[in-house]
Computed example of a mutant assay.
Amino acid sequence: MNFVFFIIFALMNGVFYQQEYERFEKPFDTSFIQVGEELVYEVKYLFFKLGQVKFKVIDKFTNNGKQFYKVRVDIDSYSVPFVDIHAKFEAVFDSRFIAHSYWSEQREKKYYQSVKYKLIENLPGYVVEKNYHNLEYNTRGNKIDTVKITTLYCDGPSLFYYARSNAYIKKTVLLPTFIEGVKGITLINFGKKKTRVKIDAFDSPIETYEIDGKANYIGFFGLTGNFTGWISSDKMAIPLKGKLKLFIGNIIVELKSWKKGQNLINLK
């Protein structure tokens, strides 16, 4: 992505006068990222409950003086007529939220796909491997590419935690985002306002920071376009609710349960 693209993208969104280009040059506050934390969300479309998304921090380690985090994301649809999706992700990122390695696996009734990539810092770039198996036509494919980069990138999982770390800061940023092995840009407006949000998991409304933005790529399950999110204003910065656009239309993602370490937090 060259600098001209960033200017055009910012002008199109009317935020050129205030946007920042995130270079991931310094560590962020990651004190809220705790091994064992588990966030479970329910996905809703209109009056239908489609499935669940679970984020879990499974490891924290130091390598060459840098702090790293390993997270796992599981997506499972319920038994509904028009959706049958089961996917797993594992990602490793550092305290700057730079994507270092990633693995995903997607299974449907007639299709399987896996994506792996790893940051090679002396290239600099990512080595990306994609595999698929179309069960309906019994076709298979394997492809390995090297994607060179001129800046640093976050990815889908690390973007989730980046948003938590920055929710309280009033700024607009353009985030270089590496999605399933493809370069993209995520624009996010942070710290727009404080507001109270009511979700089913809590008896009372919770004070949150509202964020919004736009993804200029087509991500997993057709994620693209505008989104809005609400993140708790306390030190744990828990994403409580989000409005996203997927291939089926606009959906709501809402927190269902939160486990801190080995303890399930009673949200009621």
Rank of each mutant, 00 (worst) to 15 (best):
N2W: 08
N2E: 13
F3L: 12
F5W: 12
I8H: 12
F9Y: 15
L11P: 05
N13W: 06
Y17Q: 08
Q19V: 15
Y21W: 09
E22H: 07
D29E: 06
T30N: 12
V35Y: 10
G36Y: 02
G36E: 03
Y41A: 05
G51C: 13
K54R: 14
F55Y: 15
K60I: 10
K60A: 08
F61R: 11
F61E: 12
N63R: 09
N64M: 02
Y69V: 03
K70W: 02
K70H: 05
K70G: 06
V71K: 03
I75P: 04
Y78K: 13
F82D: 08
K88H: 12
E90T: 15
E90R: 00
V92K: 04
R96H: 12
R96S: 14
R96L: 05
F97V: 15
I98Y: 06
H100D: 04
H100P: 02
H100A: 04
Y102R: 07
Y102N: 06
S104A: 14
E105D: 11
Q106L: 15
R107G: 07
E108Q: 11
Y112P: 05
S114K: 14
V115R: 00
V115Y: 00
V115I: 15
Y117D: 14
L119Q: 09
E121N: 04
E121G: 02
G125T: 10
V127P: 04
V128W: 01
N131D: 14
Y132G: 07
Y132P: 11
H133M: 05
N134P: 05
N134W: 02
T139F: 03
K143E: 08
I144T: 15
D145V: 01
D145M: 01
T146M: 05
V147Q: 06
V147C: 04
K148A: 04
I149M: 13
T150G: 13
L152I: 10
C154E: 12
F160V: 10
F160I: 11
Y162L: 15
A167L: 01
Y168Q: 06
Y168R: 07
I169F: 01
L174I: 14
L175N: 07
L175M: 10
P176A: 07
I179R: 03
I179P: 02
V182D: 13
G184H: 02
G184P: 05
I185R: 04
T186M: 11
I188L: 05
G191N: 02
K192Q: 03
K193A: 07
K193T: 10
K198Q: 06
I199T: 01
I199F: 00
D200V: 09
D200L: 08
A201S: 02
A201K: 01
D203Q: 11
D203G: 11
I206S: 03
E207H: 11
T208P: 06
Y209C: 01
E210K: 03
D212R: 01
D212F: 00
G213F: 03
F220G: 14
F221G: 04
F221V: 09
T224N: 08
W230P: 02
I231H: 00
S233K: 07
K235W: 03
M236F: 09
M236R: 13
P239K: 02
P239E: 10
K243I: 10
L246S: 12
F247I: 09
F247P: 00
I248L: 13
G249I: 13
N250L: 00
N250H: 06
I251R: 05
E254K: 01
N263A: 03
L267T: 10
K268H: 08
